[in-house]
Amino acid sequence: MKEVVQGIPLNYYLALSTVLFSIGVLGVLFRRNAIIILMCVELMLNSVNLLLVAFSAFHGDAKAQVFVFFIMIVAAAEVAVGLALMVLIYRNIKSLDIDFLNKLKW
């Protein structure tokens, strides 16, 4: 397997991104605070970003890095709307516990 510029094998980055993504999923399943869940989603997005940059450096193609830009843009928009929703939820039910938000649950 070929190596990235400074001699770090690409599969190390694959492993690191896998671990970070799994920690993000773990956080989403583990916590009940909606803001922490949003933060774990950010963590998952970042692990994917890291992998995109690693592949970009690996192939010498800048398009993946532009993709990372767009993921950052979407993350910023998502956080703005998501946190506004959190404030609205807190104002209505005085809590951010997602187990209270079960009206749409089957």
Partner: peptide, 21 residues
């Protein structure tokens, strides 16, 4: 994955990224 082409090291510079973007 197989063989991959050798990358150039100035991919991540602002000039290169701006051109692609």
């Amino acid at each position: 994955l197989g063989q991959v082409t050798v990358q150039n090291s100035n991919v991540g510079t602002i000039e290169n990224l701006g051109k692609v973007l």
